[in-house]
Design a protein around this nucleic acid. Sequence first.
DNA 1: TAAGTTTGAAACCAAAAGGTTTCATGTATG
DNA 2: CATACATGAAACCTTTTGGTTTCAAACTTA
Lengths: 111, 111
Amino acid sequence: MKRDVFQAIADPTRREILNFIAFEPQNVNTVAAQFDVSRTAIYKHMKILIECGLVDVRQKGRERYCAAKLEQLSEVAEWIEQYRQFWTSRLDALENYLNDVQKNNNSKKKK
Amino acid sequence: MKRDVFQAIADPTRREILNFIAFEPQNVNTVAAQFDVSRTAIYKHMKILIECGLVDVRQKGRERYCAAKLEQLSEVAEWIEQYRQFWTSRLDALENYLNDVQKNNNSKKKK
DNA sequence: TAAGTTTGAAACCAAAAGGTTTCATGTATG
DNA sequence: CATACATGAAACCTTTTGGTTTCAAACTTA
């Protein structure tokens, strides 16, 4: 099953897991120790993160190091960016307006 | 109940709803007509979007116009931005690597 | 080799999510 | 006023989610 990044980061525990392994890969037990819930519960969250590509696993002996692949977040970032013009500052709104005006002027000049 | 923006945008139908009303507010029926599911189902999605502040409602006669308040997405955007350094250009990766090397050298020197 | 450690997976459970049909209410309008 | 329309809400159902306990397997190490 191909998991969805949007859905993966919807859960606060999974966001905390990502944050915990963002700087340095950690094995499952180390991650689980950070949380109140059972290791198995964390493992399940991990599985979801792995399925959507947000986490990568590297076997090392009997341990498995989980590394965050945060570039997968760009899918969400890009989805949001397309709407950024709707909420940035009024200055930006002005800037956009001026850009538009300029664009229109250029088009007119070409004609 | 204070809803969570992360959770609200996890559902693909809700993302489509946001996109549909992003440029121009629409009443519930008009939105519902865009989707296969029932009006009531769309209304429930709408309610979730309203509860987390992603949608604003303005009564007008017997109709209720729903407008997207996309600036609420900034919460998610900011959460992602803090990790952007981890996946931007390879140049950044090289920079991080060099920083690490330097750090390790310093540690060794201390010993 | 035997005991301890790290992990994966199965069976099970309660609550939440997403959907439906149905009904009530307020608003327009012929 | 009577009918049609737009919406909110309740009751109900099925699937998914997030959690648990338990057990098996693979790897370490005394």
